[in-house]
Design a protein around this nucleic acid. Structure first.
Lengths: 345, 345
DNA sequence: TCGTTTTTCTAGAACGATTTAGAAGATCGA
DNA sequence: TCGATCTTCTAAATCGTTCTAGAAAAACGA
């Protein structure tokens, strides 16, 4: 069973290794009868097809693309937004018979050489919500691996599929401004607050580029409003809940809460419910992404075509026919029952 | 930039390729000064470290383990249960500097040779809720790739980390029987109903082994009860909702609904809410898994240590110190407010 | 029938590393 | 000072394919 290679099969059939290789990879390069004879011999010898590593080495194609996440895996997948992205990416990957290599970025061992980003056999990388200066990106660049980010980089050579964060947030900001809101709490993802108590941040302390940009967009659209930035931890339901609790129980309660992701907004919704507050009447609540649960919850949010985003990233990485390297996807404000006019002072 | 290999670096420094290899892999095999000289040269030449494919070929280690899912990726990840499993697995994988290769099993191309299972460079495989006779399993076996399943196989040679499905379901069944329930609808995952209207199944038509076993366990514990098996599609919130709608709107409404996963049960909860039914009073609702949202919702459920399950699978695959090949994890019935006595007839 | 094209197959060189066995020099105890 | 032991480094084989170039045989057109 072990040690059966192309050569073994070739010898058994009495042909050259090249021919056996062709039997698997280029069936039209040899006669049907011979091909069948080879396959039969392979079956008999217990040969399971060309070795993946050897093939990868020789052909220069690993047959996999890496997916980079910030934070721990669990956080990444607890957001349907991430799942949607992955689903789109997987769709294209499947089409090109390519696998997805998940590469959780544990912040610790990035410096050392023994991390997944350094070692992984991949043809390309999809960079999902990883901030610009991350060391993993440099490693990829060094290795010469094509990468596509979900955030717009400032580097003109970088490929990305993104949305106009500022503009998207501005759409929402205008909506809120029109409703009369001037006191808004923004819930952001932040490592600092993870596990502990919620923290209030200055705009400079907000880590992720996209969060920064969204805040800027909000502020741009509502210049007279006071924006407070609060984080209850990583991007997750519970973080939104904690952050909202902090905001709702504080002395000067805001008239609107914006979660920079729907999961956080839904967490905030839970906090409101517990306090007997009705969204859209007592307090306005809005999110980002438009995940399926947002509709059920009646959450006002900014929709972005996340599955298409995943597909586009996949196409840029895998489809030679696609030459666009930078793609701006459309967004749309979806107004639902969770937003309403600010109460009069 | 391109074409820089170990050899190039070796030549530049004036040492043998072996030494450069050692500089990366066995730093204590050469003097510090030489190692630093080599690293400096590598940096200068733009050498990003040993090529992953070549290393994989020569050393026989791919540095990745595959994760097999049934169905489409999106379904898989929409369940926090799956996410928990993956998180546990990823934890161990990270510890062993190994990546996870996601392999969605599109049912179509399994027969052909060009599918991920056939091609992927992996050292082992974690089989997540894939039914016993699946062709992918045979392919793995042919390739001689060690695999660990989350379902107990009948094959004594197979590795698995599982729960006693029958016993776990029986715990829940006893609870329901004690409460006087004799008319139960069980919500199951089923491909038949996917996308379309809910279907009612006979026990024989239930596909997945674990669903079968759970139903058997329920029936065992409540021999006098009538169990009806309903599916609203794949394992997801919406399927549970659809399935429950079907059951709730039917002529003879059951006194209890059991989702064979919490996500399905939570979907059912939504259907109940819409109809103004209070779980635990008007109707008993129970689930399986005890995902985080179950607690919030007050859902009675059977807890299984899913993250530990993932960890255990990882250890069996990666940790040579672990010799156990079959592991039965404990389960526990968690009674919450969603279950209550059956209404008197 | 003869050159030409097409089909079918092969030899041998990569692909880029790791591994094994061992050589050369340094260190050490007595 | 001498043999033994470490340390540091190397030569050459090997991992299992795929690729390039081309040979031999078959089919074809005129």
């Amino acid at each position: 069973m072990a040690g059966v290679t192309l050569k073994t099969v070739a010898k058994a059939v009495g042909v050259s290794p090249s021919t056996v290789s062709n039997a698997y990879n280029k069936p039209d390069q040899l006669s049907t009868t011979l091909r069948e004879r080879i396959m039969a011999a392979a079956q008999e010898l217990g040969y399971a097809g060309p070795d993946a590593s050897a093939r990868a080495l020789r052909s220069g194609k690993a047959g996999a693309i890496g997916v980079l996440f910030t934070d721990k895996l669990a956080y990444a997948f607890s957001d349907p937004y991430a799942v949607g992205f992955l689903a789109g990416l997987a769709e294209v990957a499947e089409e090109f018979a390519t696998s997805l290599l998940l590469m959780p970025l544990s912040s610790t061992d990035i410096a050392g050489g023994s991390n997944a980003v350094q070692q992984a056999a991949i043809d390309g990388a999809a960079i999902f919500c990883v901030p610009g200066g991350h060391p993993a990106l440099e490693i990829l660049a060094n290795r010469g691996i094509p990468a596509v980010s979900t955030d717009r980089g400032d580097h003109p050579a970088l490929s990305w599929v993104a949305i106009d964060e500022v503009e998207a947030a501005a759409q929402l900001g205008e909506h809120l401004a029109r409703l009369g809101h001037r006191d808004v709490v923004v819930l952001v993802d932040n490592a600092q607050a993870a596990g502990g108590r919620p923290v209030e941040l200055t705009p400079d302390e907000v880590g992720y580029t996209d969060c920064e940009l969204r805040i800027r967009g909000l502020q741009k659209a509502m210049p007279d409003a006071r924006l407070r930035i609060v984080s209850g931890g990583h991007n997750a339901f519970a973080s939104g809940q904690r952050g909202a609790e902090y905001a709702l129980d504080s002395q000067d309660r805001p008239t609107a809460i914006v979660g920079l992701s729907d999961v956080q907004a839904l967490g905030a919704l839970e906090a409101m419910k517990v306090r007997g507050l009705t969204p859209g009447r007592d307090l306005t609540l809005a999110g980002f992404d438009d995940i399926p649960a947002a509709e059920t919850a009646g959450l006002t949010t900014v929709r972005q075509p996340i599955k298409d985003k995943g597909r586009a990233v996949g196409r840029i990485l895998l489809d030679p026919a696609v030459t666009e390297r930078q793609l701006l996807m459309p967004t749309r404000l979806i107004v639902r029952s969770s937003s309403g006019p600010a109460p009069k002072r």
